[in-house]
């Protein structure tokens, strides 16, 4: 790939595919941790809301 093709619309050559080695994505990992925390809070808040209604079996 040439340098001026840095922007979006380009397709790299298969030979450039570097396989599945270690990658560095700390931002994404942080985002997913935020997702997990929101998930846990929302999920247990709903159990709490459920615990307040009439008993039923």
């Amino acid at each position: 790939m040439t340098k001026e093709e840095k922007s979006g619309d380009l397709i790299e050559k298969e030979s450039e595919h570097r396989g599945d080695g270690l990658h560095h994505a700390p931002g994404t990992f942080t985002l997913t941790l935020i997702l997990l925390v929101s998930f846990v809070v929302y999920y247990f808040a709903n159990w709490k809301a459920l615990a307040d209604v009439w008993h039923v079996r």
Binding site: E14, G21, H23, T28, F29, V40
Partner: peptide, 29 residues
């Protein structure tokens, strides 16, 4: 590249933060 055939032998165990995330997600499941 998501639109080209991958190089041969593409099956690798996840590593690094990807591995950590999959572990956390599985735990949550």
């Amino acid at each position: 590249m998501s639109i080209e055939s991958p190089a041969k032998n593409w099956l690798h165990a996840p590593t690094g933060t990807e591995r950590a995330w999959i572990g956390l997600a599985l735990l949550w499941c």
